[in-house]
Simulated scan of single mutants.
Amino acid sequence: MRPYESETVRAVTGTTIRPGGLALTRRAAEVCGLGPGDRVMDVGCGTGATASCLHSEYGTAVIGMDLSPVLLDEAILQHSGMNLIRANAMDLPFQSGGFDAVFAECVCSLLPDSVSALDGFHRVLKPGGHLVVADLYWRACDRTAMQPKASLGGCLAGAVDRRTLVRRIENAGFDIDVWEDHSEALKQLAAQLVWAGISLTDWWGVDCFSGACNNDRRPGYCLMIAHKKENPNG
Rank of each mutant, 00 (worst) to 15 (best):
K229R: 15
G128H: 09
P93V: 13
C53E: 15
S80K: 07
C53M: 11
A51E: 08
D142Y: 01
T13H: 03
V160P: 05
L152Y: 01
A185F: 02
G37E: 08
G44K: 02
G48N: 09
V133M: 08
C53I: 00
R26P: 09
K149N: 08
L131M: 08
A89R: 08
E180R: 14
T201R: 08
E30T: 12
P19N: 13
W195E: 12
S6H: 14
T25F: 09
A51N: 10
L186F: 08
A29Y: 08
T50K: 01
E5T: 08
D181M: 00
E74L: 07
N214W: 04
P112Y: 12
M224K: 05
D113P: 12
E170H: 11
E180P: 01
F121C: 15
L156V: 01
G128W: 12
R10Y: 04
H122C: 15
R167V: 04
A23Q: 10
L84F: 11
H79S: 05
N233V: 05
W179S: 00
R26C: 11
Q147T: 13
T60I: 09
I17E: 06
A89E: 10
F209C: 12
L72H: 03
A157Y: 03
S116R: 13
W179G: 00
Y4P: 01
L22P: 14
P69F: 04
D119G: 15
T25Y: 05
R167H: 13
L111T: 14
N215T: 05
T164G: 14
G44N: 09
D202R: 07
S114I: 01
L125I: 12
A75M: 04
D202Q: 06
H122P: 06
